[in-house]
Nucleic acid binder design. Sequence first.
DNA 1: CCTGTGACTTTGG
DNA 2: ACCAAAGCCACAG
Length: 128
Amino acid sequence: MSVSGPCLSCDTPGCTMQAHSDSDESFFERAWAVVAQIPVGRVTTYGDIAAHLGRRGAARIVGWALKDAVGGDLPCHRVVNRNGVLTGRRHFETPHVMAERLRSEGVTFVAEDQVDLDAHRWRPGEAE
DNA sequence: CCTGTGACTTTGG
DNA sequence: ACCAAAGCCACAG
């Protein structure tokens, strides 16, 4: 990305991350770029990422993109579904690493596989 | 070009 | 409140 200025596809105040505008990269790569910016100890949802990329109904695609990123450097464990449930835990090396990593970052849980979304939710474009 | 695939989300019973 | 069904959409074959 090389364009400067405010976000064109989201209404997050002060967002300067134009991951969706001016990009020759695929939707997958843009999704990865967003995930890479999730702060430690925070989580976000598939829907939020998709909406931020200007594709409101592409939440599923985001999850799909993450699947391709497992094993890489991306903090894919910080992405949960809209209820805070770790629906992607099955795609990790072992089903527990997702929760383990979150716990080690200080994220609290309301259930075995459900994080306290209200307490840790991060929206794409927010300050880290 | 058409079809299948899903780490999702919303809706209706 | 719980489950099933139907939208959803980028990407690969």
